[in-house]
Amino acid sequence: MSGGWLRDTAVAMVVLALFLAFELAGFRSSSLLDFAIRFATFGLLALSLNLLIGTTGLVSFGHAAYFGMGAYSFGLLMQTGAWSIPAAILAALACTALLALVVGALCVRLSEIYFAFLTLAFQMLLHSVISSWISLTGGDQGLMGGIPKPAFLGIDLAQPSHLAGFGVFCLLLSTVALRQVVRSPFGAALRMIRDNPDRAAFVGLSVFRYRLAAFVIAGTFAGLGGVLMSLYVSGAFPSFAFWTTSGEAIFMIMLGGVSVFLGPLVGTAIFLLLNDWITALTEHHGLFMGTILLILVLGLRKGLLDFIMEHWRARKGARS
């Protein structure tokens, strides 16, 4: 296990170094930087959601609540002017974890469909609290006036290149951490609960506690995604916590695949490129995205990477 950890970290460091070298070598363009920031943001959202969907078997339709919570709590803390960025990030993650703990405690006992419903309902509740608590959140206009970004440790997030590097760093850090979670005995227990909750309970696992822990971990990482998003747009908006954001995250997971750990990240990249391409071509975004999604779901019945991996395994199996 420690070997895996070391290898993951090494891979992550190499990726980060490559990204930074690429930037420093002058290959950077503002659209590439934008893409890197958005990829890190939505990648975190999708990857953390897959801890629930893929690993634990909990289909949450309310994951954007934590994304929004991270963004708002971070933005509000920064606007007080009294917090440094790292401190505010940690505090925002703590707030998000607390919200996930409360919602999770109410939801994880429920069966599949009730769970999807209720997570959706709590997300809508948060959304309506954000839109109507105008004195705190600015309502639908979002947190206005920009989010101050004081430099720390020589990193100035007001510069897009620094922000992109920071975003990629956060994503890699979280990827390594989440991979550790999935590989640990804790992750194995989650998979057992997913496949057979009764058996898991029978061997003495507290299904409730394990599910709740997974829910809180997933929510916290989604909150980090929200923090990056608020840094990117220099504000926070109620749509961060709207159901469409959750829908998009599920879409990304579906594009990539649930069974491969990095599937959601592949899905995020495909989704973002597809989204940018479609909005550039047509105003009938929903029609195109919806049709592509239907073809994927009904045609492949699984994510792209799932599909490829299965084929690959089947071929390997046939050969040996």
Partner: peptide, 22 residues
């Protein structure tokens, strides 16, 4: 060049950046 943000501010920000840079 007109593009649809579908009412999401983050998408509006992205579109604005993309229009300027790309």
């Amino acid at each position: 060049i007109v593009r649809d943000s579908r009412g999401t501010p983050a998408e509006a920000a992205r579109l604005a950046r993309e229009m300027i840079s790309s």
